[in-house]
Amino acid sequence: MILYILRRLVSIAVTFFVVSVLVFLMMHSVPGGPFDGNDMPLSAAVRAKLMAQLGLDQPLHVQYFNYMAGVLRLDFGVPYQSPGETVIGLLSRAWLPSLVLGGLGVLIGAPIGILLGMAAALKRNSWMDYLASGLATLGLTVPVFVISMGLILIFAVWLNWLPASGWGKPERWILPIIAFAAIPLATYARYTRSAMLDTLNKPFVTVLRAKGLSERRIIFQHVLRNSAIPMVTVFLPMFIGTATGSIFVEAMFRVPGLGSYFVSSIQSRDYPLEMALVLMVTLMFCFAYLISDILYALLNPRIRTGGRR
């Protein structure tokens, strides 16, 4: 196990390096630079001076190594769009809305999805099954911004129950949380349903019935436990995916989260911020998958206890 983890850590380091080089190259090979915006005409001299100040006049590989040297000291530089603070400072500020809204979205959506999926699996071909499958299909096929738009239209515009956008008071959170919850809910509903049906068709379930166990005990102790193994392992990556912000949801509800900075950093060629965001998300996904795989091994006795005795 330790060897396995070490191997995975090395592969994460390699991934990190490759992603950083690729993103750095791509970022700089896109035409334009941070001071080419039309709304801010600069004289050539001023522009050159700014470029020199930020080190952007140096050869690309020098820039890369300078930047990465900083990264290794956890210094991600200063965002161009907000020179008064560091990238770290900006990110730690932007984190909060994404983590709260996205995190709550997953924490609310996933359990509801699991319950729906369970109900669907246990009452196959009933209205419950169709409802769950319908919701899951909607959640996975309708784009989030359409869901967001629908939510705003219904609850903010027509019913006027909730504010349409912003950040701050908790009532402003409700609609974006629902929007964020859509995908985890749909994914988990589908996932739970198929995992449960898969387990319910296993021969050992018939054996459990033949032993006289109650249906409730079979479902909650055996079937759920067997189905849970794959379900637990998709949780962390999904959490990271949602809690690092959605460009669409944050844009629709005008939430100042990570997702919105992704957009603005690319638009304004804010190289340090863009790099920091990509590297951070890459690293978090790598670790989420690593932890998931370790969890899988720990939950599965076949892997945990090795081969036959």
Partner: peptide
Amino acid sequence: FQDPMTAFDPVF
């Protein structure tokens, strides 16, 4: 049952 390999719950 016929197949003992699949008759037990693998996680218990």
